[in-house]
Simulated scan of single mutants.
Amino acid sequence: MTDDVVVLRYGHRPGRDDRMTTHVGLTARALGADRVVLPDNAGQSAETIRDITDRFGGPFAVELRDDQRAYTRDWEGTVAHLTMYGERVQDVDADIRANSVDDDTPLLVIVGGEKVPFDFYEAADYNVGVTNQPHSEVAGLAVFLDRLFDGEELEREWADADRVVMPQETGKRVVDPADAYDRDEE
C-alpha cells in the first residue's frame, strides 16, 4: 500500500493514552494525511477513527502494527519525527515539502506517545520541533501538517460521507451530503 503521507503513532498506554491516540489519528485524517499506523494495542482508538471516517468521509486508512521500529526502518521515503528536541519546523518545512509532497515521495511522520527510543531519532531524515517546548503531540502534528500542505488541506472535500458539517457563525448544523451540495448551488 502506497500513500503520500502516513502518520505513525509510536507507543500507546491503554487506559492512559486512549483519547490522545484517537486524537492523533483524527488530526492526521482531518489535516491531510492518508493513513495512520497505530500500535497493535490501540484497537479502540482505531475503531473510533474508522467510525469517524465512515460517517464524515474519506479516504483515510487505519492500520494496527506491532512492528513499529521495523516499519520505520523499512520505510521507503522521507521520515519526519516530531519532537521538541528537533530543528524548528519553520526552518525545515519547505525542505520536507520539497523532498516529499512536491516530488511524490512518501512521507512518514512519527508522533510519540511514550518515551521514543533513540533509533527513531536516527532513522529520521528530519527531527522536527514545533516550538521546542513541551506541549501536546496532537498540537505538534496539526501545526506540522498545516505547514506541510500550506493550508491547502483546509479546502479538502470528503468522499463517501454520511454527513457534512455546514460552516456557520453559531450553532451546529450537520446535514446529508446531498443537501450540502444543493445549498452550495443556490
Rank of each mutant, 00 (worst) to 15 (best):
D103S: 13
H81N: 10
G151N: 07
E76V: 09
F118Q: 15
V164T: 12
Q133Y: 07
T131F: 03
G113P: 03
Q133P: 08
Q68C: 15
V89R: 02
V92Q: 12
R163N: 13
D102I: 01
G151M: 05
W75L: 02
Y85T: 14
R69T: 14
E76C: 07
Y126K: 12
V128S: 10
R69Y: 13
V165M: 09
R97G: 14
R73T: 09
W75S: 06
A161H: 08
P106A: 08
A161V: 06
P134Q: 11
E157C: 02
D93Y: 11
D125H: 14
G129N: 08
E76Q: 14
I110Q: 09
D125K: 10
V101R: 12
D91L: 09
P167K: 07
T78D: 02
V89I: 05
F120S: 15
T170Q: 10
D67L: 03
E155C: 06
H135R: 13
Y126A: 15
D103K: 06
R163M: 14
T131K: 04
E152G: 14
D91H: 12
A139Y: 06
N127L: 04
V165I: 11
N132H: 08
E155A: 11
F144Q: 04
D125C: 11
R97E: 15
D102P: 08
V101Q: 00
V79M: 01
I110W: 04
E114T: 08
A98K: 05
K115R: 08
Q133S: 13
T72D: 09
G113I: 00
R69W: 10
F120K: 13
A94M: 10
D104F: 06
L108N: 12
E87F: 08
D162G: 15
R69G: 15
I96H: 06
P167A: 10
G112E: 03
S136Q: 03
Y121N: 03
R163Q: 15
